[in-house]
Design a protein around this nucleic acid. Structure first.
Lengths: 236, 236
DNA sequence: GCGATGCTTCGGCCATCGCCGTAACGTACG
DNA sequence: CGTACGTTACGGCGATGGCCGAAGCATCGC
């Protein structure tokens, strides 16, 4: 079967440490320059360039020119999902390694981070739990939905999901929503279009902001108030 | 971040052609011997043995001894999901290759096959479409549910999903169900616990049977009658 | 026991590929 | 138009790792 060769090609591209680091850095959904990616991968710019060319040809990442810079980003959400699923398997394998040696950066990542286009970490799980507890959502490892009252609730906050509902072939009272199992909490949280909308809203209203150039995000004072007031979520 | 190294390790394991072939062969959920896997991968037994040892150590596959044979199978459903997601990305990249050169084996695979623990191919998609059309299920790329009437319908056929419903923390009228986007049809079909139950039922009642040692399955005459009578599905 | 089968380990060969040096190219900016 | 910066192309080095031949263990059948 020819598809096996393609499969191996994609997996091998993701399997090189330098390329994996670059893909990891792009997991926040932003676009980075070749030089930035070279730095995070710990290789020389010319080495990074070669990697980027190969991954671009394979459709893993996409290139967009802007002035004299060339910005690279993950080509499709499918690539982000692929990486999530590999990380899930890698996390299963993690135990043999030490767990306690988490630096401050890891601590920030566990607290709150973006997972391509949605929020993850303690924050992401807490928000999902709050929605489930309030009867606004149902969620397990296989699938999730936002209930009719959940759509109204999120709408009252200013997150409009009617567009997503209208896109469904048969107008139903709820919205299907993709769950995402992340490596730090080992529990599902909101992903897909709904998670993306919630994340975008959080950034737009200054509830969270990015920490330097990583995937980690910081919860602003305003965000603490909003997450507690709207969702009943309080994070130490 | 240490998790990047683990990520690369897992992806690299999946990225070797020989290992990818073995993993592919195990995607039907069965357990195969080291010799069988060596044959499908096209390498000598001793080479296969090394690959299998590495993948077992990494937690990708599991070993169960049985007499003088050693049977290998995918370690967890998470590994199968990882492979599905890689195949999805690989399929996006496929266009540059020729599409028409599908041999009889590929044709059988496209018609009906198992995808780890559930049915895929034309058959899998047709069954999912039939359930959606009958109001028994809702399904999109992000998530899926089996409706209350769907639970009753499947129950009337003999597929009991009450256990799955009872497992849910809050007893609801429906069951969340994982969708799976497969490479040949490019459309979602039923996976997860529900897809697994439907597949198991189909095998148990002789509706489908495996074709030699591949992932492809053949629909029996009895199966044609059942799929048409129960689901309204008719496949040429 | 003895041979046969299935699997694993060891040793050495070979190819692939990641890496960086140097150098050339193209595009913005002064 | 020249400089500077970012990116790409080429060549050679080095190491990782896949591959098989041969030999060593284990298990089953006679």
């Amino acid at each position: 079967m020819a598809s096996t060769a393609l499969f191996a090609e994609i997996a091998a591209l993701a399997g090189d440490p330098a390329r994996a680091g670059m893909l990891h850095a792009l997991m926040d959904g932003r676009a980075l320059t070749a030089t930035e990616l070279a730095r995070v991968a710990g290789v020389a710019p010319q080495t990074a360039s070669g990697h980027l060319a190969r991954m671009t040809a394979a459709g893993l990442i996409a290139l967009q020119r802007q002035g004299r810079h060339r910005y690279f980003r993950l080509a499709t959400p499918a690539v982000a999902r692929m990486m999530e699923s590999i990380m899930e398997v890698a996390a299963d394998h993690a135990p043999p390694r030490r767990r306690f040696a988490v630096g401050p950066r890891d601590a920030a990542l566990r607290k709150a981070r973006t997972c391509y286009d949605h929020l993850a970490g303690e924050l992401g799980v807490a928000l999902a739990d709050a929605l489930v507890a309030g009867g606004y959502a149902e969620l397990d490892a296989e699938a999730g939905i936002i209930t009719a009252t959940g759509i109204d609730f999120l709408g009252s906050i200013g997150i409009d999901l009617e567009a997503a509902r209208a896109r469904r072939p048969r107008a139903t009272a709820h919205i299907l929503c993709r769950p995402c199992l992340d490596w730090s909490e080992r529990r599902p949280h909101l992903a897909g279009n709904v998670g993306k909308a919630l994340c975008a809203h959080s950034f737009a209203h200054g509830w969270v902001r990015r920490i330097d150039g990583t995937r980690a995000v910081a919860i602003t004072p305003k965000g603490h108030r909003a997450f507690h007031g709207e969702f009943g979520v309080r994070l130490g």
